[in-house]
């Protein structure tokens, strides 16, 4: 996936993203870090085709496989979602329908993407749950979302999304609403699953420690500009830009 000279503006022509160039290598994990309001979520929305109507793409393009942004309309996106492109969000409990059991939602999602019958879908669901270290699969599939902890729910979400074997996963603050222990578990499962299925992952986070734990390379975003992009060690050990140094030093205090 490649982003070229992307500029996004709001109603008042303020630049929310300014001339973004980003080349994401297939199979790699890229972390996008930056302070609140730096445009991380906006960047994710551009890639996912879910930009709020108040924001407009002023110029630039996204090349995704052989699709260009220009010909990515809703129809094309609808086909991409699930099998090619998928997302994991910050609040795991809001991502599942509260009144339908997890098993049913899991099976429905699988069978709307992959043509399998119900028993096969259930066995896929169980296999995926085991991969995310949730071993009491029967019980989890028979639960409503409110019966599980947030950390477990996020792992369920991850299991659902990875069951579809997507080529590109966008995760917007996937661990920000979790306690420290669940954070590590969730990150571990994401690492494990993505290395197994070799998909590309873009993780958005405001935490440098999350980024350094999971990513191969790090993008630092500041007020809509990419101020630094490079391999993890390079960015962490010898930051070129003042803003990154600031981020790094403030991370020390935590």
């Amino acid at each position: 996936m490649r982003i070229e000279a992307l500029t996004v503006v709001d109603d008042n022509k303020n630049k929310i993203l300014d001339n973004i160039n980003l080349d994401v290598q297939e199979g790699s994990i890229v972390a996008i870090v930056g302070e609140s309001g730096s445009g991380k979520t906006t960047l994710a929305n551009v890639i996912l085709g879910t930009l709020p109507s108040m924001l407009k793409i002023e110029s630039g393009t996204i090349v995704y496989k052989n699709h260009y942004l220009e010909d990515l309309d809703n129809k094309v996106y609808e086909k991409l979602y699930g099998s090619e492109l998928t997302a994991i969000f910050q609040n795991p409990s809001s991502c599942l329908n509260p009144i339908i059991k997890i098993g049913k939602q899991f099976v429905e999602t699988i069978s709307s993407n992959i043509y399998v019958d119900k028993t096969n879908a259930i066995s896929i669901a169980k296999k995926m749950l085991k991969k995310t270290n949730l071993h009491n699969t029967e019980k989890i599939l028979d639960s409503y979302p409110f019966e599980l902890s947030r950390g477990m729910l996020q792992r369920v979400n991850i299991a659902i999304m990875f069951a579809l074997n997507p080529t590109l996963v966008i995760a917007d603050e996937p661990t920000s609403s979790l306690d420290v222990l669940s954070q590590k578990q969730v990150l571990d499962e994401m690492l494990h699953l993505s290395s197994e299925s070799k998909n590309t992952m873009i993780i958005i986070t405001h935490s440098l420690s999350v980024a350094s734990y999971i990513a191969d390379s790090i993008v630092v975003l500041c007020k809509g500009n990419i101020v630094e992009y490079g391999a993890k060690n390079q960015v962490l050990n010898s930051p070129q830009h003042g803003y990154t140094q600031e981020l790094l030093s403030s991370a020390m205090y935590l």
């Binding site: 979602y81 969000f89 509260p98 993407n113 579809l164």
Partner: peptide
């Protein structure tokens, strides 16, 4: 406007579904 519908769409649910 529900988040889980948004998530469902991202996992390939169509408008008809």
């Amino acid at each position: 406007s529900n988040n889980y519908i948004h998530a469902a769409r991202m996992s390939g649910a169509s408008d008809t579904r």
